[in-house]
Design a binder for these strands. Structure first.
Lengths: 159, 159
DNA sequence: TTCTTATTCGCACGACTTGCTAATTAGGTT
DNA sequence: AACCTAATTAGCAAGTCGTGCGAATAAGAA
């Protein structure tokens, strides 16, 4: 995603208006590597601009996605998460706490799907599933105790 | 996923009951490579067993997932899709029509995430995004005409 | 056949996201 | 500086997907 300043210019050049709400969201998303949900962004935004609408957050995120400034990440379960990182990268997900980490991956260029001649491939996404060190520790103590989640809320496996 | 007969045995050995609803769903899912949603499975099931409940379809799919007989696939947008294929495989998605195809992928063993020492990786999923030949043809005719979908319903990119 | 317990069904509810629209505002124009 | 108009916002209703719950039912053992 471009800087807030660059986005301001991009917006104006497209006939879009530069509102305080948008400017705030530009700031909150720029360089943000937390892969926030709309709700969590809304919470942050509200802290700085009480009264901002969740609807506006969704709207702005959709605009930015249309403009190619960010990506949607759907990795099972809950809400869509947003990623302003436009570099060639992939994701690692902790199946316990749900955190998502950006990673560069070696070897993606060599990936070859077998037997899909009738598809024009445009993009490849790699998702690693694992357990982060923090969750690994809490697992050691409480064996499976509080970690059994319903299929719906736990990060789903999508091979 | 195992055959309906094998599943019947597995169910009984676990103290689960073998109901007609479950047996039907075993049949519908066995060898199914369409990656159906709960709704579409429900539709098929209803054709053969009017009165079967959507609730039961969800319940049975969750059971099968718990038993490791199938996977959830969440590739952006709409409903969860179910995959009874337990082989080591990955997926190709048509961003136009949303169809999902199973594929074997060469080179996955060589994939190396960079800089995530604090993660224990258990699984890797690869998703190719592209356009199937059918959609490619219709694109050639009607340029973008009916293919502009809202971000929400179109297959989302998850790098 | 009887009994116990799992299962089914259907509705209400919850999470997430979008549709709709009146009121407001950004930003160009006079 | 005041004005104009299209874009935007806010907020609530509604839609989609999936689950919680409880009464009625049925599987399978005794």
């Amino acid at each position: 995603m471009q800087t807030p300043t660059e986005l301001a210019a991009a917006y104006r050049s497209q006939g879009r208006k530069l509102t305080p709400q948008r400017q705030l969201l530009f700031q909150l998303m720029h360089g943000n590597d937390k892969h926030p949900t709309a709700e969590s962004l809304f919470a942050e935004a509200t802290a700085q601009m009480p009264g901002i609408s969740l609807r506006t957050v969704y709207q702005t995120l959709n605009e930015l996605a249309e403009m190619g400034e960010l990506q949607f990440i759907d990795i099972g379960g809950g809400a869509t998460r947003f990623d302003p990182n436009l570099d060639d990268h992939h994701h690692v997900v902790c199946v316990d706490c749900g955190q998502i980490r950006d990673v560069h991956v070696n070897g993606t260029a060599a990936l070859k799907p077998v037997g899909i001649e009738d598809f024009t491939i445009n993009d490849v996404g790699v998702v690693f599933q694992g357990v982060c060190s923090t969750c690994e520790k809490s697992r050691a103590k409480s064996h499976k105790t509080a970690h059994a989640k319903s299929p719906a809320q736990q990060a789903k496996i999508s091979k």
